Computed example of a mutant assay.
Amino acid sequence: MTAGTVQTQNMTGALPLAEDGVPIKMQAQKVNVHYGEKQALYGVDLDVRKNNVTALIGPSGCGKSTFLRCLNRMNDTIDICRVGGNILLDNEDIYDQRIDVVELRARVGMVFQKPNPFPKSIFENVAYGPRIHGLAQSKAELDEIVATSLQKAGLFEEVKDRLDEPGTGLSGGQQQRLCIARAIAVSPEVILMDEPCSALDPIATAKVEELIDELRENYTIVIVTHSMQQAARVSQRTAFFHLGYLVEEGKTNDIFTNPKDQRTQDYITGRFG
């Protein structure tokens, strides 16, 4: 068990509980990451609480995105990357050889920094995952999955009359919500977001932030952000990374108003970073 975890099980016996009684969806235990000879993460222990938004903050190059990519094994795509330690999803080690990585990435979806819709129609962007994973038995079921995913992503009303038009023709903010709909369409349990608003204008950013708050009712969300204001607005928990170390993690309000570590204090007050 990582720090801040108690041995108690919840009523179903499925997930360990954090000290505040919230079930823990994912656990990182002593996670080290190397890119060739260079070490990028050092012994990271972090509990990701279910149906919470956990924000990862810290200066550029501190290991936030590297850690995020560990959570659905995106680092597997980098030949020189080695990941050590354990990362558990529902108490199962996602780096176990028996784990199907394609299935894992359906359970732990990802939304990237820049919107990256496929060069397909809006409909086909969302239908792509359900088709691959065989989630729809008929055209009617697929239509329903697409419509429901677009509704959950707050996009349906804006695009319902042009589902056959290219996803790439949408505005930046709409494209990012389309990518969120695409992630939702395969019924993930966890959604990872790597600076999802950094390429968006303030109005589009506000819409995505509002969406994140709605999504946490049904999903566990981990978001990397350079905006401390955004972390304060959207997250319940915040983890501060510095030079590859997890310096501090706690309730977002506590991290921003009463951090325990001087490095956290220096970062959030703008003394470095």
Rank of each mutant, 00 (worst) to 15 (best):
P166D: 05
K120Y: 14
F118T: 11
V146S: 01
F118G: 09
G154W: 04
T168S: 11
Q176C: 00
L155Q: 08
S138R: 01
A127T: 05
D164G: 12
R131C: 12
P115R: 02
A183Y: 06
S187R: 13
E157G: 08
G129L: 03
D161F: 12
A127E: 05
H133C: 07
R162K: 15
A136G: 10
E195M: 10
P115Q: 04
E158N: 13
L135K: 02
A127N: 02
P117S: 04
N125K: 00
D143T: 10
M110T: 02
L178Q: 00
R131S: 13
D164Q: 15
V159A: 03
G172T: 02
A127I: 01
A181R: 09
E158G: 08
P188R: 05
N116Y: 10
A147K: 15
A185G: 06
D164E: 15
P166G: 11
K139M: 12
A183K: 03
L135D: 04
F118P: 07
E195I: 04
L155A: 04
T168V: 12
V190D: 03
Q174I: 03
K114N: 15
S121W: 03
G173S: 09
D143E: 15
K152H: 14
M193S: 02
G134K: 08
R182A: 09
A147M: 13
P166V: 07
L163R: 08
G173P: 03
F112P: 10
G172P: 04
E157L: 13
Q113Y: 10
K152P: 05
F156A: 05
N125C: 06
G172A: 00
S149H: 11
K120N: 14
M193L: 08
P115H: 02
Q176I: 06
L163T: 01
R162T: 05
V159T: 02
A147D: 14
R177Q: 00
A140D: 15
V186S: 04
A147C: 12
Q113N: 12
Q151C: 14
I122T: 02
S138Q: 10
L170E: 08
T168G: 10
I191R: 05
S121M: 05
A153R: 01
F123H: 13
Y128T: 14
G109H: 05
P119D: 05
P166A: 09
K120S: 11
E158S: 13
L170T: 02
L150P: 00
S171P: 09
F156E: 10
R162V: 06
I145V: 10
D164W: 12
M110H: 02
E124W: 11
S187E: 14
M193G: 10
H133N: 12
F118A: 10
Q175S: 08
G172W: 08
Q176H: 03
E141Y: 12
S121P: 00
I184C: 02
T148K: 15
